[in-house]
């Protein structure tokens, strides 16, 4: 592998890993803090991608689509938490899995009715449609760098909110003992709603950002869901930093696995998970 292609694969790994982090961070927070296994989390990624497709067709601009899509996703998340998920906190995992699996079917059916089952493309915004020439034959699209940059900014913002703000302290405290948080006069249900809506918006944003490079197609959330659960397990349930590290590990393992050992490419991610779990059964970062 020459340097230019190595550089391209490295950038691809980063971009893929960071995008997965957006999805997995919400999943791990909802799992760790509220104790909910949300199989429908991948659907938010799918919904985000379709929102980007529909809104970009209407407005003619991906930026406008994202600007509209994020508040819609937040509202949708808050509504879902209020209407459905808030009733799941005291239920066992089987009931959570039943409801959230049912939601996947409903979301896909509604998607099919509204937008159809064809594969759609979303145009890369003209400002970012250029490529950077790395060698005579290899170049790297600017849009992928933009995705990575946006994800890095969001990861830093998330770090700031969780580590430096009172809301973040309450979220982390709720991860440990929700009754005690409430006994200090804090409306833990409102915190749950905010966290859930945030998780939905991050997953949807990942779908919106990915739409131009992956195109938009039915069931696109299911692969992302499985990989996100792998990331949550590797990183440690409830740990956002674990999710970041694990997402990057998976990004590199998957990307370089496909290049270096193409015959094993489907397995590399799971081999990494097995290895991490043998080494640290609770994930790289413990809950907290």
């Amino acid at each position: 592998m020459d340097f230019a292609s190595f550089l391209i694969q490295t950038l691809n790994s980063l971009q893929y890993g960071l995008l997965l982090f957006l999805v997995a961070s919400g999943l791990t927070l909802v799992f760790g803090i509220m104790g909910i296994i949300n199989l429908a989390h991948g659907s938010f990624y799918m919904i985000g991608a379709y929102l980007a497709f529909v809104l970009a067709s209407l407005t003619g601009n991906l930026f406008a689509a994202i600007a509209l899509g994020i508040p819609l996703a937040l509202l949708f998340g808050a509504f879902l938490e209020w209407a459905l998920f808030s009733h799941l906190y005291k239920r066992d995992h089987l009931e959570q899995v039943l409801l959230t699996y049912g939601l996947i079917l409903i979301f896909e059916e509604v998607r099919s009715l509204l937008v159809g089952d064809e594969v759609h493309g979303v145009d890369i915004p003209a400002v970012f449609s250029a490529s950077i020439q790395l060698s005579e034959v290899l170049s790297y699209p600017v849009y992928r760098l933009v995705i990575s940059a946006v994800c890095i900014v969001l990861a830093v913002a998330l770090y700031f909110v969780i580590q430096r703000t009172r809301l973040g302290m309450m979220i982390r405290a709720g991860n440990h003992d929700r009754v005690m948080v409430e006994a200090l006069g804090i409306n833990i249900n409102m915190i749950y709603r905010v966290v859930f809506a945030l998780g939905v918006a991050l997953a949807a944003l990942a779908g919106m950002l990915a739409a131009p490079i992956s195109s938009v197609f039915p069931n696109m959330g299911s692969h992302v869901l499985i990989i996100s659960f792998v990331i949550v397990v590797i990183g440690g349930i409830g740990s956002v930093w674990g999710a970041l590290v694990a997402a990057l590990v998976i990004g590199f393992a998957d990307t370089f696995g496909k290049v270096l050992v193409p015959e094993l490419s489907g397995m590399v991610v799971y081999l990494v998970m097995a290895a991490v779990l043998l080494w640290r059964p609770e994930g790289i970062f413990k809950k907290g």
């Binding site: 982390r172 405290a173 003992d177 009754v179 005690m180 907290g288």
Partner: peptide, 10 residues
């Protein structure tokens, strides 16, 4: 509370 209920992760 009994058992104190501090947040060990904070």
């Amino acid at each position: 509370p009994e058992g104190r209920g501090i947040f060990p992760n904070l």
